[in-house]
Design a protein around this nucleic acid. Sequence first.
DNA 1: AAGCATTAATTTCTGGCGAAATTAATCCGC
DNA 2: GCGGATTAATTTCGCCAGAAATTAATGCTT
Lengths: 137, 137
Amino acid sequence: MAAHPGLVDQWRSLVTCYNTVACALDRALQDAHGLTMSEFETLDRLVEAGAAKRRVQEIAADMYLSQSALSRTIARLEKNGLVLRGMCESDRRGVFVSLTDEGRSRHAAAAVTHRAILGEHLTPADEPSTEKAELIT
Amino acid sequence: MAAHPGLVDQWRSLVTCYNTVACALDRALQDAHGLTMSEFETLDRLVEAGAAKRRVQEIAADMYLSQSALSRTIARLEKNGLVLRGMCESDRRGVFVSLTDEGRSRHAAAAVTHRAILGEHLTPADEPSTEKAELIT
DNA sequence: AAGCATTAATTTCTGGCGAAATTAATCCGC
DNA sequence: GCGGATTAATTTCGCCAGAAATTAATGCTT
């Protein structure tokens, strides 16, 4: 019993760290850019893909978000003019999702905030400092 | 620009790790014991405290859960007979929360599942293997 | 001791999530 | 080419979370 007494502590540290960063990110993105984390992440995947990217599910696979949640997220983004949904001729079940110009610029602005928040809460890995320690402890 | 290109990757790893474990935990606790993660964590804090523990907020502070969410979680636990709410004489705003016998035994059973799932997904830290320790470090 | 700010907990209220049901198109075996 | 299985996306449903409003007790200042 209790063969790995550190496991629970390890998990709690992970939870605390995740929640701290996620909460800070969510607030900052919402306040400064009116985006939820899911919305930002969705834009992020589209920017990474460069061109138009089909398959809502393709994005979902990268994102740990259910297909239904992503469908609604994309609907929200479209309503706000950041994204466009289009037909896909080759497979008419599929849906193309592509960034609008405004989507691209909103993402660019939000990405600055995003990295700033990460920088505040995570250590750059090549420079282990005192920062993250306090979060984890 | 991109002064810390690894930051985003680090964050994504953390998110993936957290989601993977949290999802597995949630499923296992729900299927085997009918408990949500929040409910289990609440029981866990009460067991750790040993005696009756007042201050809903005291528990909340340990748990990264808002006071309102915890209030509802405790209400659910009470409805299921795992926990009791009682008056606190010294400060009548406060509410004592205490485990029932069934709460104690349900927690004990669930804790086994809990540790098993953690063991599957996290490395014991004293034995760094190929799994996910790298994410946390 | 009266009045106002503060603190503890609960209760709306709104919004996002996942599971399951639904709709629609494609694939496949005959 | 027809009918059943599969796949892509959406919609519906119920649940849980946080923010803000509410209720109630305490503390503080005069």
